[in-house]
């Protein structure tokens, strides 16, 4: 598995190029994945309108999460100018999320989508097509050797790009613990970090990941302040 650190043309963002099922893909420190040959950008677990979803049961998170998520999305789209965008499921925190999206954010999202192909992959939080939004909806799609779906499948992970688990990794060094969201990959499969502003992480050593990766080749690409850090599975801690 080759691994070269490369700097994007705007010079501000560090990325790492990795291979999944023989396809070359770029993992970006901002939490997105890009395939240069196809000009394909993939982003996972946006969880838009999570704030208003929680508000329904009297928990009032700041109502700015969708706006903050879209702003960050705007900056990566501006950077890569993708031809196609895949939103890998759980794009909205619940089934009514798209309907609740405030007007300004809806317009913002519309502007990001315009002029490109946009594919909404169904997630467990949003199993149906988002209301009144353009773009295509699919349960799963295949492009070349890669298959894009929300939940990782246990049986056959070859070439799978998935989300759902919000991978995070933890290292302990010099008596300090550092926990970060990460890309989780073993050369055969990639699980994307969650992109949404209010999304937490689940440690890649949790039993929810059992059977998904070949441990010998497993690496976590941890999201640092301005670059990604590739860390061997053996160096990670649970919890």
């Amino acid at each position: 598995m080759s691994q070269t650190a490369l700097i994007q043309t705007d010079g501000s963002s560090h990325s790492i190029e990795i291979e999944v099922a023989g396809e070359r893909i770029v993992c970006d420190q901002r939490g997105v994945m890009f395939i240069p040959d196809l000009r394909l950008l993939t982003v996972s677990d946006l969880h838009l309108e999570k704030g208003s979803s929680l508000a329904r049961r009297g928990v009032f998170m700041p109502p700015y999460d969708s706006g903050a998520t879209l702003l960050r999305l705007q900056s990566v789209i501006a950077c890569y100018d993708p031809k196609t965008v895949i939103s890998l499921g759980d794009s909205f925190h619940d089934g009514e999320g798209a309907a609740r999206l405030p007007e300004t954010y809806r317009d913002h999202l519309g502007a990001l989508m315009s002029g490109r192909d946009w594919i909404w992959i169904a997630g467990n939080h949003d199993p149906h097509a988002p209301a009144d939004l353009p773009g295509d909806t699919a349960g799963e799609i295949a492009i070349g050797a890669l298959r894009f779906r929300h939940e990782p499948s246990v049986e056959n992970g070859h070439g799978e790009i998935a989300g759902h688990l919000h991978p995070g990794a933890r290292i302990v060094r010099r008596g300090r613990s550092v926990r970060r969201a990460c890309f989780a990959a073993d050369g055969d499969r990639l699980i994307m970090p969650a992109f949404g502003s209010f999304t937490g992480t689940l440690n890649v050593l949790d039993e929810a990941y059992n059977g998904l990766f070949s441990m010998a080749a497993f690496k976590a690409y941890m999201i640092g302040r301005d670059r990604l850090y590739a860390v061997s599975g053996k160096a990670l801690c649970p919890g």
Binding site: I171, R173, R174, K219, M222, Y229, S232
Partner: peptide, 9 residues
């Protein structure tokens, strides 16, 4: 610390 862990790799 992350950089250190990465260098080990």
């Amino acid at each position: 610390l992350l950089a250190e862990a990465s260098d080990d790799l």
